[in-house]
């Protein structure tokens, strides 16, 4: 199991690997005996210390923090579903991580929405960093049975315990405005409306 430090507010570029007893792995960086010969190279000490501190802090109150994050995420999701027509939550309704939600907004491109939201001070993501620059939609969303358009219309929102309800209210209002603006520009909206007529 691999764990990324930045997922829990630690520094980027550092992580941990849990290897079950008896499992043998081959190093991909060789030339030194650091980390029991599994990863050669000088330790990035400040990042490792930062990751350690992040672990320490998250363990201190993670049950309450997770509860608060999940509550904020659910409040946000319900508000989006109530206020913005033609959007869908992806994944299982209950069996999910507390801090993220993936939503598809029909007829608009997720990256276009991400850029508009960025201009409005809201940072979201359209996919993992490893697919940046790729033109093809997320293989994970396609594996869930979505169409190319559906997968392209998807944005991932992340939350943490420090988010407030006021912040979420502001975010929902801005998301609604941006979605409407992009839908007015979309040729797919006209054809969907025609289908409904």
């Amino acid at each position: 199991m691999s764990i990324s430090s930045h997922k829990i507010h630690g520094p980027k570029g550092v992580g941990a690997l849990f290897v079950k007893k008896g499992v043998k792995i081959t190093p991909i960086i060789v030339g030194g005996e650091q980390e029991r010969g599994l990863r050669a190279g000088t330790y990035n000490t400040p990042s490792i210390v930062g990751f350690g501190k992040a672990c320490e802090m998250i363990m201190f109150n993670y049950i309450m923090d997770n509860r608060r994050t999940k509550s904020n995420r659910d409040y946000f999701t319900n508000k989006i579903m109530q206020e913005i027509p033609n959007c869908h939550v992806n994944g299982h309704v209950h069996q999910r991580l507390p801090g993220i939600v993936s939503i598809s907004f029909e007829c608009i491109d997720g990256e276009a929405l991400m850029c508009l939201l960025d201009m409005n001070g809201i940072c979201v993501s359209t996919g993992p960093a490893c697919s940046t620059g790729s033109i093809e939609p997320s293989h994970v969303l396609m594996a869930l049975g979505m169409t190319v358009e559906g997968a392209k219309s998807t944005v991932r929102f992340s939350f943490d315990p420090s988010n407030t309800r006021e912040e979420i209210d502001i975010a929902v209002k801005k998301i609604k405005d941006c979605v409407e603006r992009l839908r007015n520009l979309s040729p797919l909206r006209a054809s969907k409306d025609k289908d409904k007529e």
Binding site: I108, D109, S186, P187
Partner: peptide, 8 residues
């Protein structure tokens, strides 16, 4: 009218 990224 366009459906696509800012580049599109």
């Amino acid at each position: 009218k366009a459906f696509g990224s800012p580049l599109t």
